[in-house]
Design a protein around this nucleic acid. Structure first.
Length: 473
DNA sequence: AACCCACAGACCAATTGATC
DNA sequence: GATCAATTGGTCTGTGGGTT
């Protein structure tokens, strides 16, 4: 009598689909996965693919002629963002070892880590190598137009991401999963028609998008025109450094030295900004009061009192669309009122002291958080909107960048001191009103263009959605 | 008021572990 | 050993909240 022994390596079956135990994925397969009348698997549509290479961190340079393609450079309209892209040494492009990773025009590249659903189609004929955790697909042209393929895949991946990956703890799109995804099998003719519709919308998006200026740009533009503030010169100065010592070398826990370094930076910045500008005054002269907010512990129960988050300060206003709620109470609470002026007390150095005004009627008993300061101005001399625009322009950004305090650059703070001591252009109120009016016209124009673009973008998604729905079983 | 720290999202980049 | 897919730790940013 003996014992029968079977030897199996766990790896033989560990990747078998039936063993897959993450419930979200199984749910996806059962309920959310698109299945079509006639379908193709991704693996059937591609004639070739390659994965990126694990280049070393020290290989990446800020300048050069060989682009390194990373997921962070993927725009959401299938194009590559070449603005902040990094480079690899020229020699790498000639090196046989990296031959396989050369990105060619027409490749469809899919990012495998991070937020799933980032896809681009390479339109450029440039020297470029693919970084790790991305996969490039070459499409069988007799089956699919690559742009159309990219749009469809992107849509399906985003659906997959929503249902499976989001907050699930895993962040990698397995190649097997990718290759098993199904897309409709339809004629090139039909694809062409849909693609034409998409491209039509896209041309308009691109055309109008080019005209969109950032809010800060608009503020800078009007303020430098009206006040003769030298914002251009300050941007130029920022690029040059006038000391060879890095701040980290200088400080070594020497607060005084650090402050004097910051102070001298601020001095030279404001010297340039304000050269020849009249009406530079200390803001403190016109501040009646400042008051910090209160951050009670919150839960999700909307029975309680609503509380603002720090991200409520956006685009020069206070938004109420993302509220928290607290069941707590306190004897005296300073609630938010229409017309209030708030400034954020802490954030990164670029975002600290953003200002916003309550333009709309706020929800009842709305609490503002500890990280916001409410400022009351002497409105005989001050138009609060004007002050908010200056805070959020390069003028304010420059001042608060150097005036803010805190060791950790990712969370600097300001206090009322910094608000009181802000020297800024404060022309007579009538001039302030005129500037505000001018800025508001420009901001309104911008938001109208923005609205048009997002409707167009939405229509592209709709085209794909309608198409996939119509091909469903 | 000033400072400090935990956390979460997003993605990068080094490492691992299996296979070629 | 080289290569590949996938994992894991790290960094950066933004935020909330606690402690001194």
């Amino acid at each position: 009598m003996g014992v029968k022994v079977f030897e199996h390596s766990f790896k033989d079956f560990s990747i078998h689909k039936l063993l897959r135990s993450d419930i979200k994925y199984i749910n996806y397969e059962k309920s959310f996965k698109f299945s079509f009348k006639k379908s193709l698997k991704i693996k059937d549509v591609i004639k070739d693919y390659y994965k990126g290479f694990a280049f070393k961190g020290k290989d990446f340079k800020d300048t050069g002629d060989v682009y390194a393609l990373k997921g962070v450079d993927f725009n959401d309209d299938l194009s590559i963002n070449f603005n902040d892209i990094t480079f690899l040494p020229t020699s790498y492009f000639e090196n046989k070892k990296y031959n396989k990773f050369i990105v060619k025009k027409g490749d469809v590249v899919v990012s495998l880590v991070g937020s799933i659903g980032k896809v681009i189609v390479v339109q450029e004929d440039v020297k470029m190598l693919l970084n790790q955790n991305n996969i490039a697909l070459r499409i069988k042209e007799e089956l699919y137009y690559k742009e159309f393929f990219a749009y469809v895949l992107k849509f399906i991946l985003i659906n997959l991401f929503e249902k499976v990956y989001k907050s699930a703890g895993y962040s990698f799109l397995a190649i097997d999963d990718l290759f098993e995804l199904e897309i409709p099998d339809i004629s090139l003719e039909k694809q062409k028609k849909l693609l034409e519709k998409i491209n039509e919308a896209n041309i308009e998006v691109k055309k109008t998008e080019a005209d969109i200026k950032g809010n800060k740009e608009i503020l800078d533009l009007v303020l430098s025109e009206e006040l003769k503030v030298k914002i251009e010169d300050e941007n130029e100065r920022k690029k040059q450094s006038y000391t060879n010592n890095s701040i980290s070398k200088l400080l070594k826990r020497n607060q005084n030295l650090r402050f004097s370094y910051m102070w001298s930076n601020l001095q030279s910045a404001q010297k340039i900004l304000y050269e020849g500008v009249t009406h530079i005054e200390k803001l403190g002269k016109y501040i009646i009061s400042t008051r910090n907010g209160w951050s009670p512990a919150c839960d999700g129960n909307p029975e309680g009192k609503p509380v603002l988050g720090i991200d409520a300060i956006r685009d020069n206003t206070i938004h109420f669309n993302k509220l928290k709620y607290t069941p707590k109470n306190k004897k005296t609470i300073d609630f938010v009122q229409k017309g209030d002026f708030y400034v954020s007390r802490g954030n990164t150095i670029d975002l600290v002291a953003l200002a916003g005004i309550v333009n709309d009627e706020p929800p009842k008993e709305l609490i503002y958080p500890d990280l916001m300061i409410k400022i009351k101005f002497d409105e005989e001399y001050i138009n609060p909107k004007y002050v908010a625009y200056v805070f959020n322009s390069t003028i304010g950004r420059t001042y608060f960048k150097y005036a803010s305090k805190g060791k950790n650059q990712s969370m600097v703070k300001i206090s009322s001191d910094e608000l009181y001591n802000f020297y800024m252009p404060l022309p007579p109120k009538k001039t302030q009103d005129a500037i505000v009016a001018k800025i508001e016209i420009k901001l309104k124009e911008k938001s109208e263009i923005f609205e048009r673009v997002s409707i167009k973008k939405e229509s592209i998604i709709q085209i794909i959605n309608n198409f996939l729905t119509s091909e469903k079983e």
